[in-house]
Amino acid sequence: MKLLGMMLPLLVSLSLLSGCGEKEKVIVYGSPENEKEVEAVLKEEDYVDKTTVIQYDNSMLVAVQIKPWDKWKKAKLEKKLQKKFDEKYPSKDVFVSADYKIFYEANKIKREQVEDNKLKDKIKKLKKLAKEET
């Protein structure tokens, strides 16, 4: 019980910390032509928590984070979103991933303003990574 007394304030303060600080939910990086459109598409899906989209040439990397309870259906929702984007942009090469690694790297690309020539390699690597199985 002593331990409980010690842990409780810590837990409360942690939960408070995560409560505030709402961040930008949808981030689109790269060619800004259809930024608003992509944003609208993602906002339609209520299971999507946060998104980072990277556009280059004719490709699009959509990294999403799914809301906690919907994570049970992560694989299904990922597929659903992929289909939606494929239908919406049939001419583009769209890659949707709900994996945290992809989301983290996408944000890093945005933050570091990676140049176009390196971007291609990097995204190629990420796609390969996302397809890896255990």
């Binding site: 945290y100 690694k101 992809i102 983290y104 199985e133 255990t134």
Partner: peptide, 17 residues
């Protein structure tokens, strides 16, 4: 798990091992 995802080339799916 997060450590492996962030600092190494592991995804959520592969970081388990």
């Amino acid at each position: 798990s997060l450590f492996y995802i962030i600092f190494f080339d592991f995804t959520e799916a592969t970081a388990g091992n």
